[in-house]
């Protein structure tokens, strides 16, 4: 973990309320896809955690959805402005679990962390299947980016306005070796019930510090209490205990 200043390179809207932010700074502590950074925003006390979407040299890409005051402030920031960022947080996805035919399943704003994962997996030469689920065609983003990496992409929308109608679970293929997934908890639960292999599940929780000190984001697992920010956000299928 380190605390460094990042400079905003660009910011653009991907959909009505999803933004893509590119920043320049010291990315050396970001070691795995699925990790997150914690942004300090002027006027807010707690930092805001956002997962790493892409990384290229000193350029960090974050894709986030406008949900509250933090993301609203972030969406108003302009190129050239700076912000303090804690980087290298969380365990991230373990690439060694992928097997020969990894399957990536992302829902809505859970899609971004899968992008860097897909890129890293493609760099190993493996075929990568990706299922991206959104509510509507208007909310969809990044499908072309995954295609450009050479992934096999299946799209699902709840209203059928793009790709297959329904949920991501309807598009799960017959043959895969490990599932990497990120998305809203009901989707994660449905994926958990649908897959036959091991899986790496990325969770989201309200955090205090983001680096393991405050115990704000703890959860119960088969193997004991874990902090989503430190022993997570990625948990393995066999250790997950659903809270309800």
């Amino acid at each position: 973990m380190n605390d460094t200043i990042f400079t905003i390179l660009s910011q653009r809207k991907l959909t009505e309320n999803v933004f893509e932010l590119k920043l320049n700074g010291d990315t050396s502590r970001i070691t795995r896809p699925g990790q997150f950074v914690n942004l300090r925003l002027e006027g807010l006390y707690l930092r805001r955690p956002i997962s790493v979407c892409d990384l290229e040299g000193e350029t960090l890409t974050l894709v986030y959805k406008l949900v509250g005051r933090g993301t609203l402030l972030l969406s108003q920031m302009r190129p050239g402005q700076t912000l303090p960022v804690l980087t290298g947080l969380g365990n991230g996805y373990d690439l060694s679990l992928a097997g020969e035919r990894p399957l990536l399943i992302g829902g809505g704003v859970g899609v971004p962390p899968l992008y860097l994962l897909a890129r890293r997996l493609r760099e190993t030469g493996k075929p990568v299947s990706v299922i991206l689920g959104f509510n509507t065609a208007a909310e969809a983003f990044y499908a072309d980016r995954f295609l450009a990496l050479g992934c096999t992409v299946s799209l699902t929308t709840v209203d059928g306005s793009l790709g297959q109608r329904g949920f991501v679970t309807a598009a799960i293929p017959a043959d895969y070796t490990h599932v990497y997934t990120c998305g809203p908890e009901p989707m994660l639960k449905a994926v958990y019930r649908s897959i036959r292999t091991g899986g790496s599940f990325s969770f989201e929780k309200r955090m205090g510090c983001g680096f393991g000190a405050c115990m704000g984001c703890s959860c119960r697992t088969i193997t004991g209490y874990k902090r989503i920010c430190r022993e997570g956000p990625v948990l393995q299928k066999e250790e997950i205990l659903w809270e309800d």
Binding site: Y45, L46, R69, G208, C217
Partner: peptide
């Protein structure tokens, strides 16, 4: 102790709330 259910952190003007509950 596990402490209280989550969410157990909330941001506030110039501060924060916690209800960790002694994990």
């Amino acid at each position: 102790r596990f402490g209280n259910d989550t969410p157990r952190i909330a941001d506030c003007p110039a501060g924060m709330l916690n209800s960790v509950g002694l994990q």
